[in-house]
Simulated assay, not measured.
Amino acid sequence: MVVKWILRVFAILVILLTLFPYLSFNQWYVRIWDFPHLQIALLTLFAIALYFIKFNLKSKSDYAVVLALTGCFLFQSVKIYPYTAFADKEMGNASANVTTSLSVYAANVLQKNKKVEAVVKDVSKYQSDVVLLTETNERWKNAVVNKLEAAYKHSFLVPKENTYGMLLFSKYPLYETKVKYLVEDTIPSIHTKVIIDTKDTIQLFAIHPAPPTPQHNPSSVDRDAEMMKITQLTRETEYPVIVLGDFNDVAWSETTALFQRVSGLLDMRKGRGFFNTYNANSWLMRWPLDHVFTSADFRVMQIERGADIGSDHYPFYAKLSLEPKLAEEQKLPPPSKEEVAKAFEQISEKETSQTAGH
């Protein structure tokens, strides 16, 4: 009987972990459960198998528990299925003999990381057209600029000591480049236009919003508001768009899903794999936090997760073809009025909290 109760408590815990992210609270201890859907799915499967050890064919409560666990497993599976190789690709493959392309490389280097050469080696391996390094301070700027400036003639550097510094390098000219503080005056984002060799202009946004953790931010309001403000900017531009960086959010969360629906940007992971970039120090607790989202003008030529660079993140690399004539084939449906209203609500929630703070 004791074993049965232990199994039931374990089953209830799994069910609660499944439901927790859908509570309408922004506190970190709720939002953090957006991340491990794959792990919870496997834990739920384990709980089902374990429960059958003491399953009583005559017990209605046993049937109820197993049915609830099965529902949780199916629910978790539906959330992560689009990011498996079995699902349809949201972003199509590049056409044969494509002539216009752009490659991007994004890496959270971990500010205290001393392995500068590992980062430089990985950047050099991919020879990406655009490189974004986040969590970079003055030490990182001084260490990498002289090693990368020969290959990258154009750069925009925003080093900071608070783990939100950003270094942007480009082989192509950067135009109308600005640093903006969309949510907090300590957390920058870089907004620029990249003019590639075919004279096409690409609108690029580099972001690194604060995560919902007790040491950074007790709620997800700041992160969510910054992502929603970026959706406004992507909707206003006339150019093909790339948004990249450490989002501190997983691809399957409600916030990122809303970000996609409102911005219309595509997720190249869908139909190709997880490409988990965090946590590099744990083989079990890993999920995709670093992203490259693009407008429908782009298609995928290559995606890779970079090497171990001594950080708690792996780099993320993508080579993209620019094929605007095929954009209609993969455009997402326009957002509903309710979705746009929800995005504005998340922005206003942050603005209200700032006003209350003053």
Rank of each mutant, 00 (worst) to 15 (best):
N162P: 09
Y172K: 02
Q127K: 09
T177H: 08
P209R: 01
K153P: 10
T186L: 05
W140C: 05
K114V: 15
N137S: 15
T134S: 14
E149F: 05
Q111H: 14
T136F: 03
K171T: 02
T177E: 02
A106I: 15
L204G: 12
E161K: 05
K193F: 10
A118I: 11
E184T: 03
K115T: 06
T192I: 01
A151Q: 11
P159L: 07
K125V: 09
P218E: 07
V130W: 08
D200Q: 15
P209L: 00
P218T: 00
N146R: 10
V104A: 10
I187E: 12
P218S: 04
S219I: 07
S124W: 10
P212V: 00
D200G: 03
T134F: 01
S170A: 07
P173E: 05
T192V: 03
S128C: 05
V131C: 07
Y172Q: 04
E161P: 01
I196L: 13
P159D: 10
T198A: 06
T198V: 00
P211Q: 05
K171H: 06
Y105R: 01
Y126V: 04
F169P: 02
S103C: 06
L133C: 09
H191R: 02
K171Y: 01
P212L: 08
W140L: 11
V116E: 06
I207W: 10
V221C: 05
F156N: 09
L167G: 00
K114I: 11
P188H: 09
T201C: 07
A143G: 02
T177L: 06
L182Y: 02
L148S: 08
L168T: 03
I202M: 01
H216P: 06
P209T: 05
S103R: 01
Y126E: 14
M166K: 06
A151C: 05
K153T: 08
Y126W: 13
Q203M: 12
L110K: 15
A151V: 06
K193V: 13
H216G: 15
H191G: 02
Q111N: 15
V144W: 01
K153V: 00
K199Y: 12
Y152W: 01
I187V: 13
H216F: 14
S124M: 08
I195K: 11
T213C: 11
A206H: 11
E117N: 14
M166Q: 04
Q111C: 14
T192R: 05
V120D: 06
L148I: 05
N217R: 02
E149H: 06
Y126F: 15
Q127Y: 01
E176M: 04
L110T: 12
S155E: 12
R139I: 02
S219N: 12
N108E: 04
S170W: 04
V120K: 12
K180N: 02
N108W: 14
N137V: 02
T163S: 13
T201D: 14
D129L: 11
Y181T: 00
I195G: 10
K114Y: 15
T213P: 07
T213A: 04
K153Q: 12
P188F: 00
D129A: 03
